[in-house]
């Protein structure tokens, strides 16, 4: 090892006292969360608790909502990504995102993967990169003969893996997944989960899910969010997944995972 991956900070990314507002409404309050590198961290909780809001603040996707703003710090390599001198475009290139519904571009499979790399200034062999990314996303064997075909012709599960491959092609450090399986059938879901496991050897993955079994199956760490009395989302408990699901410390977590709430 010639260089430490995280010279300034041991965590992949870290939220410090984060509040997120939509206009005057505080959607999420006082979140402190440290994400372990090369692990899968699941964020679970009842709907409306701000899971999606939180995951979107990791790569400044919330910037696209005009009324949204954020207090607190999000440290990435020791740098607060919400500092005024930080370029959100660069943040998103390093922290990729996979969305709830598969959203391939209405272009060919090949172009879907090549485009992100190209706009980010990739100069290498594009064919290799496409193949490599598709292999990593466990999609290569299914599409290698139809690379020029429209991505919209793929099944939902394939589309979602294509979206993952597309994200991999720009070489991010962290991959955010916002309920990536909610639009997929159980078999496609299983494939994505296997893939996540595979990818977690190289990438830090943060996944939002409303599916507790999925969190229990697929994640290393789990953060449980819920809604406070003022309807703002709060983080109740965070720990290794096995501990959260077997020995939750908080009564609210226990209620949720045993199905008494939510």
């Amino acid at each position: 090892m010639t260089e430490t991956p995280f010279p300034n900070n041991a965590y992949a990314i870290e939220l410090r006292n984060v509040d997120i507002f939509y206009g005057n409404f505080r959607a999420v309050k006082d979140i402190n969360l440290q994400i372990e590198p090369r692990k899968i961290t699941a964020i679970i909780g009842p709907s409306g608790c701000g899971k999606s809001t939180v995951i979107r603040c990791f790569n400044r996707m919330n910037d696209l909502v005009p009324s949204a703003h954020l207090n607190g710090e999000i440290l990435f390599h020791g740098k607060n990504i919400y500092d005024p001198d930080v370029d959100p475009v660069q943040v998103r290139r390093l922290i990729g995102m996979v969305f709830q519904k598969p959203n391939p571009f209405p272009k060919s499979i090949y172009e879907n993967i090549a485009w992100g790399a190209r706009v980010n200034g990739y100069r290498g062999n594009m064919d290799d990169l496409v193949e490599q990314s598709l292999r990593q996303a466990a999609l290569w064997d299914e599409v290698k003969d139809t690379l020029k075909k429209s991505a919209l012709a793929l099944s939902g599960g394939q589309q979602q893996r294509l979206c993952i491959a597309r994200t991999l092609a720009v070489r991010p450090e962290i991959i955010l997944m916002d309920e990536p399986c909610s639009a997929l059938d159980p078999i496609a879901t299983l494939k994505i989960e296997d893939l996540m496991r595979e990818l977690s050897t190289q990438y830090t993955i943060i996944i939002v899910t409303h599916n507790m079994q999925q969190a229990a199956r697929a994640s290393d760490f789990t953060a449980f969010f819920t809604m406070d009395t003022d309807r703002a989302g709060i983080m109740v408990e965070y720990g290794p997944t096995s501990q959260i699901f077997t020995r939750p410390k908080d009564k609210r977590t226990e209620d949720y995972i045993t199905g008494r709430f939510g």
């Binding site: 475009v89 998103r92 990729g96 995102m97 597309r166």
Partner: peptide, 21 residues
């Protein structure tokens, strides 16, 4: 659809790249 814009931004595209492409 907004999902298209988000996909593009999520890959680290700038605003004009998103619009143009």
């Amino acid at each position: 659809p907004n999902s298209l814009r988000q996909a593009s931004y999520g890959l680290g595209a700038t605003q004009w790249q998103t619009i143009w492409h």
